[in-house]
Design a protein around this nucleic acid. Structure first.
Length: 475
RNA sequence: CGGGGUGUGGCGCAGUUGGCUAGCGCGCCGCGUUUGGGACGCGGAGGCCGGAGGUUCGAGUCCUCUCACCCCGACCA
């Protein structure tokens, strides 16, 4: 049985309007007063904190230490690496006045921290004994975007950026692969969002990287969302920033570097992928409230029972909330918590009290379950089921909306109708890539691991294909 | 930055060929009755109609300029 919400548009009818309304109504975020900025309200920030907590642990377990570098980067530093500045210059915010005085050197508000961190690396590294250096920072970033969208693309956003320096390319590559696997793990096992891992084309890779690995997810609109990236920086920055060391033989060597990040964009992707006409459906692992207890009435015996239930659940490491507000009706509370996406709702009324059981309602599929009081310990299992179910949904959606195109006509037709991911062979020439984008809006998202048949042709031109790639329109 | 659209209490909107005191729903405050899927009654608070200028006896409504936001592109995690 479904119940209609009055405050939000239908997701299926207008995804963009639905998305904006849900974020505001569920009190995840609000617009900031400056263009393109957003305010993380406590409910939204709590989600980020849960992601942080999990990821931070994984990062530390890998032997990467947290540090913090300044937000203001001297312009000369950011200009050092040619490819890097070329990629970022259109979206920089720059401070020109400080303390009422025009600055002699402009300060760039970090769009990413490679340059300011590697300036320090150059000072800190002189011997093979100083390596590897493995740092991470949690911080905010400013990129002056032309078109903004809450969570998915804002002028300022929050993220984590890891930066490492190694003695060998192999060691750096291992780090790059480790990071992208961690992101995949977070997406699948935390955010319940299926996606593809693969390397980026030269056109799409990070400005200043030799190679970029990405996790790509698919949104209900059929557009792809670049959801996390891990970069093999080679020696591009070490050469321009002069990060070198003497190896065991006394020979000077440049370090091999990596950088990798995941941002608050992941929350936007999660909202869009999982939400339904009734609002958010939060995957249990990132739900600030995993179980909400709604007493039908606020009478004494009922509340006593509800409190007992609350206590037992909270002892099981479950984030549980007893909504015993007296000024909201049962129906209002139910709608509120559905909109906010709490994975499990427990209804407690005279019936439940008398029979010593609980009415459990799953947010993911609306299913009502009658649970005996002494079986409360099953809730953890149920939360896992809900996670699995949400992940399964996105996996099925991803599979169903990943198509094969043998020729360009098929490709164009898919882009005009369903969109989604398209597997196709490509010659890896930038000209073809640009042309395909011009004609269909689709860009390469990442390379697949599929072996291609000898002599297979490029989707667009007649030359031999080099690999199979995933194409899609990007968010 | 190009194409389209919208600006009217916190949110969503209506407002006729210019006309008198600017409305409605939700939300908010107070009192009471309610409470198993967004309860109801009564009483309140909250607006110089995005901004500036102009036309007019008179502008939310017409004209000019400007700003902001949204949607579609280009740029992008």
């Amino acid at each position: 049985m479904t119940f209609e919400k009055k405050n939000i548009p239908k997701k299926s009818e207008n995804l963009s309007q639905w998305y904006h309304r849900v974020i505001l109504e569920a009190e995840l975020a609000d617009y900031g007063p400056a263009k393109g900025t957003m305010i993380f309200r406590p409910y939204g920030y709590a989600i980020w904190e849960l992601i942080q907590k999990e990821l931070d642990k994984k990062i530390k377990d890998k032997g990467v230490d947290n540090a913090y570098f300044p937000m203001l980067i001297p312009e000369s530093l950011i200009n050092k690496e040619k490819q890097h500045i070329k990629g970022f210059s259109p979206e920089l915010a720059i401070v020109t006045i400080g303390g009422g005085q025009k600055l002699t050197e402009k300060l760039v508000i970090r769009p990413t921290s490679e340059t300011i961190i590697y300036d320090s690396f150059a000072k800190w590294i002189s011997s093979w004994r100083d390596l590897p250096i493995q740092l991470n920072q949690w911080c905010n970033i400013v990129r002056w975007e032309k078109r903004t969208y809450p969570f998915l693309r804002t002028s300022e956003f929050l993220w984590q950026e890891g930066h490492t320096a190694h003695t060998s390319h192999k060691e750096a590559t291992n780090m790059v692969n480790w990071a992208i696997e961690v992101y995949k793990d977070i997406y699948q096992n935390f955010l319940a969002l299926a996606g593809y891992v693969g390397s980026k084309s030269d056109l799409e890779k990070f400005a200043g990287a030799d190679k970029t690995m990405a996790y790509e997810t698919l949104m209900p609109s059929g557009k792809a969302l670049q959801s996390a990236t891990s970069h093999d920086l080679g020696q591009n920055f070490s050469k321009t920033f002069n990060i070198n060391y003497q190896d065991k033989k006394g020979k000077n060597q440049y370090v091999w570097q990596t950088s990798w990040g995941i941002s608050t964009r992941c929350i936007g992707g999660m909202i869009m992928a999982h939400g339904d006409d009734n609002g958010l459906r939060l995957p249990p692992k990132i739900a600030p409230v995993q179980v909400v207890i709604v007493p039908v009435k606020n009478d004494k015996d009922l509340l006593k029972y509800a409190n007992k239930v609350y206590k037992i659940i909270s002892e099981q490491d479950i984030r549980v909330k007893l909504d015993d507000r007296d000024d909201e009706t049962m129906g209002y509370k139910i709608n509120k918590w559905e909109l906010r996406g709490a994975p499990i709702r427990i209804e407690i009324g005279p019936k439940e009290l008398k029979e010593q059981n609980l009415t459990i309602v799953r947010r993911d599929n609306g299913e009502k379950i009658n649970l005996k009081f002494f079986l409360i310990s099953k809730l953890n299992q149920l939360l896992d089921d809900i996670h699995d179910n949400l992940l399964k949904d996105t996996k099925e959606f991803l599979d169903k909306n990943t198509f094969d195109a043998d020729n360009f006509d098929q490709f164009k037709k898919i882009m005009k109708t369903t969109k989604g991911f398209i597997r196709a062979n490509w010659c890896e020439d930038i000209e073809c890539e640009t042309k395909i984008k011009e004609l269909t809006k689709a860009t390469t998202r990442c390379k697949t691991n599929e072996k291609i048949i000898k002599g297979a042709k490029c989707l667009y031109c007649d030359r031999n294909a080099k690999a199979q790639w995933l194409f899609a329109q990007a968010y």
